[in-house]
Amino acid sequence: MKKTIGLGMAVFASLLLLTACGGDKKTNHSSSDKASSASSSMMEESSMMGSSDTAIANYTDGTYKVEAKEFDENGWKEHVELVIKDGKISEVTYDAVDKDGKLKTADATYKEKMEAGSKTYPEKYTKELADQLIKTQNVNEVEVVTGATHSSENFKKLAEEALMFAEKGETGTHTLDLGK
């Protein structure tokens, strides 16, 4: 970060010096216009170089839920519910429900079958994904859970949609077409 600032200041000083020493005599720009232009160029170069600082979204406190529009091919409808407190993600719930209202994380048979093949199961991977989102506060930094790739991708899509509503302050339950 210090190198980026130092480089930016050097670029700014060079641009300011070049602008002051040799300019187009036909235009009548004040030195503050030139400095402002050089400063804008420096900012653009700095942002193109890729700053480690990321813009933090402005979330409105509340509860935001997004659920899949349809049940998937296995009979589950996934959903994510986010609680925003003090502008940050404070709670995350990720699960799926079947047509009878039974939660995927509470289905012992599903857990047994999935754990045997994938070494993970809904109660485990939903918590891992939720914990990652709370820790990072950024859907793009949530890593896919091995053995639950499809569910991890759906989690990210649902959470991203919920955060979009959190930016607008539109609480409640919304739907998203996860496609097939």
Rank of each mutant, 00 (worst) to 15 (best):
residue 2 K to Y: 13
residue 5 I to S: 03
residue 7 L to W: 06
residue 11 V to N: 10
residue 12 F to S: 09
residue 13 A to P: 08
residue 15 L to F: 13
residue 17 L to F: 14
residue 17 L to H: 15
residue 18 L to H: 10
residue 20 A to S: 13
residue 23 G to D: 03
residue 25 K to F: 13
residue 25 K to S: 06
residue 26 K to A: 12
residue 27 T to Y: 09
residue 28 N to E: 11
residue 28 N to H: 14
residue 29 H to Q: 08
residue 32 S to L: 08
residue 33 D to W: 14
residue 34 K to R: 06
residue 34 K to M: 03
residue 34 K to H: 11
residue 36 S to G: 15
residue 39 S to D: 09
residue 41 S to L: 13
residue 44 E to W: 10
residue 47 S to P: 07
residue 49 M to F: 13
residue 51 S to V: 15
residue 52 S to Y: 11
residue 52 S to R: 15
residue 55 A to F: 12
residue 56 I to C: 13
residue 58 N to W: 05
residue 59 Y to D: 00
residue 59 Y to T: 01
residue 60 T to N: 03
residue 61 D to E: 01
residue 62 G to A: 03
residue 64 Y to Q: 00
residue 65 K to C: 06
residue 71 F to Y: 14
residue 75 G to L: 03
residue 77 K to F: 10
residue 77 K to R: 03
residue 77 K to V: 08
residue 78 E to R: 15
residue 82 L to S: 01
residue 83 V to M: 07
residue 85 K to V: 00
residue 85 K to E: 01
residue 87 G to T: 00
residue 87 G to Q: 01
residue 88 K to W: 00
residue 89 I to P: 02
residue 91 E to W: 01
residue 92 V to Q: 00
residue 93 T to E: 11
residue 93 T to W: 05
residue 96 A to L: 03
residue 97 V to Q: 12
residue 97 V to C: 10
residue 102 K to T: 06
residue 103 L to F: 10
residue 104 K to M: 07
residue 105 T to K: 04
residue 106 A to R: 06
residue 106 A to H: 11
residue 107 D to Y: 04
residue 107 D to G: 12
residue 110 Y to W: 09
residue 111 K to L: 10
residue 112 E to M: 12
residue 113 K to G: 08
residue 115 E to F: 12
residue 115 E to P: 05
residue 116 A to E: 14
residue 116 A to G: 07
residue 120 T to R: 06
residue 121 Y to E: 03
residue 122 P to R: 00
residue 128 E to V: 15
residue 129 L to G: 05
residue 129 L to Q: 07
residue 130 A to G: 06
residue 130 A to W: 00
residue 132 Q to N: 08
residue 132 Q to I: 10
residue 133 L to P: 01
residue 133 L to R: 02
residue 136 T to D: 09
residue 139 V to D: 01
residue 139 V to E: 01
residue 144 V to P: 07
residue 145 V to E: 01
residue 147 G to Y: 04
residue 150 H to G: 15
residue 151 S to C: 02
residue 153 E to W: 08
residue 154 N to Q: 07
residue 156 K to L: 01
residue 157 K to Q: 15
residue 160 E to A: 04
residue 161 E to Q: 10
residue 162 A to E: 01
residue 172 G to V: 07
residue 174 H to W: 08
residue 175 T to G: 08
